[in-house]
Structure formats: structure tokens, C-alpha cells
Design a protein around this nucleic acid. Structure first.
Lengths: 153, 153
DNA sequence: ATTTAGCCTATGGTTTTAGTAGACTGATTG
DNA sequence: CAATCAGTCTACTAAAACCATAGGCTAAAT
């Protein structure tokens, strides 16, 4: 399960993606708009900044904004920053491999064999989905919803 | 990341699958063989028993054994018992759905749209992989390893 | 110089994880 | 029947992770 931190972070990124090229957004506004504790959000955005996803401007007219186009930021990148590696076990992680403590031979570990597939399936989706993709999917879903609504009326 | 509890549990299940129809296995033996703290393993096996994956016999000649054929026990079943739902967010869980706290409209939530795909991909693998499958894959991997070894000699 | 708004450090509460201890119960066997 | 064996139950603890909150510091704009 994703932590609240990660969910907050993803919500913030989607919000910022929608406001892309509209200049810096205040933490306070973002927090209020998305119902996220302001101080907690500060820490999250800072982490995303320190990892190159966001940029910030201090002082009046300041705020946070995406470091690059929504087309170039993926869910995978963001989740790894906030939640850690995607891999269910460290020994199948591409981005931060580590030997499993007392897991005899790596090649013949049943857990590893299965989890390798799981990691790959997750990575394929999360590294293949950009913020721009998500905005598009949200818009599509909203259109569908509107259709349902009209149908009901 | 899988918890140690889950890894221990999976290891135990694979071990018991290999010993299937060889009668009950002692917790103590399993713990020693797989390097798992005995008391911790006790609790794990009990949970797996209470959820219908394992059965046990008390007294002399007792121990634990699979409740049914390794072909009928999947990784998905076991992981859900020890780790909880596969879904990254509760609102896409098939086995224990729950509304996400303050996630406005479910249909148009960007996080949900993506995580629905992730859950499906994971479930497809984990619910499609039985203990019997894993044993087979391990054997295959061991054959390959032996080949590598012979080649080196 | 003052205000604005992000940055940094510290702290606290709650929950989960990992593990331990010890008494209890049910089954077997001599 | 009693001794022994082996799983079951209750309780507890230490450490880590998670979810925040408080308050002062620093950089930028006017």
C-alpha cells in the first residue's frame, strides 16, 4: 500500500502538471486545494525538488513548479523518491539492488523468480506513465462521467 | 517491499510444498532449515493455518503440512494473508475494497486510474503462480546452474 | 528594510514490524 | 494413567517507520 506521503506527493505533482507554465504555485494553495497538511507537504515537495522533479522560487511570487515538461516526468520516478524502490525484494531492484539477507543462492530462489516478474510488470506501467498521460486519462474519464450525467438527466 | 514475515512465510510454504505427502513437518525443523526465528515462524504458520492454507497435527509425529495440493495454493493467496491486499490503494482492491480517504470522485482520480492497472498486473502474476509452479521453476533454474557449473569445470 | 515564501532542525505521537517468554492444550505412547 | 511431545494462546518489548507540527532561518522581491 502506498503511504500517505506518496499519495500526497502524486496529487501535488498532478496538480502542478495541470498548472504547468502558469508560473510557481504556493505550497499553501496546493495544500488547501488538495487537502494536504501544509507542513507535511513542504517536506514532500522539498524531497521531490532535491531529486530533480521540482524546482522552486523563494520570496514574493515564488512557489513550486515542475522541473521539466509533464511528458518527461513518470509515476515511477516520483514513487521511487517517496516510497523507495518498486521491487518487492531488494535482490530484483534495478535502481537499488541489494543482496537478500540469508537468501542462499540468488539464481534458484523461488521468491526471487516470481518477484522479478512482478517488479518488471510494475515498472513497465509506472515508468511508462507520465504526468501528461495521467492528465489526459483524467480528462477522458471526466468526459465519460459527464456523459453518464447527461444520460441520467 | 515484502516484510520479513511474508518472506519467511513464502519460504516455509515452498519448503512444505517440496515435502508434500511426506507427512507433518516440525516447526523446529523448518525454522532451522530455513533460518527463521522459531517463535516468529510459529505465529506465521498459525496465521496460514487459520486462513486455510495449512493444516497441523499436535503431539508426537505432529507438525505442519499443506492443506491441499501445491497446485492449488497460489502466491497471491499467501501474500494477502501475510501482507494484506495486493492493491497499492484500497480503492482498487478486489478482495478488500475501501474508499480512499478524501479522494474526491473515484472515477476521475489519476492515482486510482494508474494503480488499477498496477494491481491488475500484480494479481495476474501472483494469483497465477502456484507453489507447484514455483517448485518447477526452481528445479529448472537449478538445472541451468548445474550446466553453468559443468561448463566452468 | 520589510514582507513573502521556501528551507532547516527538532520533536512527538501512533502504528507496524520483528522478535521473545511462558503458560496452556491436545495427541501419542509406554 | 502419566510422561512427553508439539502446536496454541496471551502478553510483552524494542526498534523502526509513518504522519504530522512548531519555530526559527534564509533568499528574493518591492
Amino acid at each position: 500500500m502506498l503511504s500517505k506521503k506518496t499519495k500526497y506527493g502524486l496529487k501535488a505533482l498532478i496538480y502542478l502538471a495541470r498548472q504547468y507554465d502558469k508560473g510557481p504555485i504556493l505550497i499553501a494553495d496546493l495544500a488547501q486545494e488538495e487537502n494536504i497538511p501544509k507542513k507535511f507537504l513542504e517536506a514532500i515537495l522539498l524531497a521531490l525538488k532535491n531529486n530533480g522533479i521540482l524546482q522552486s522560487k523563494k520570496g514574493k511570487g515564488g512557489g513550486y513548479y515542475l522541473a521539466r515538461s509533464p511528458k518527461l516526468i513518470t509515476f515511477g520516478q516520483a514513487i521511487r523518491i517517496m516510497e523507495g524502490p518498486l521491487a518487492p525484494v531488494p535482490c530484483v531492484s534495478e535502481t537499488s539492488y541489494a543482496k537478500c539477507t540469508e537468501c542462499g543462492s540468488e539464481e534458484t530462489c523461488g521468491i526471487r523468480i516470481v518477484m522479478k516478474d512482478v517488479r518488471e510488470a510494475m515498472a513497465k506501467i509506472l515508468d511508462g506513465t507520465t504526468l501528461a498521460d495521467v492528465l489526459e486519462e483524467i480528462d477522458k474519464a471526466e468526459e465519460t462521467q459527464k456523459g453518464v450525467l447527461n444520460f441520467c438527466i
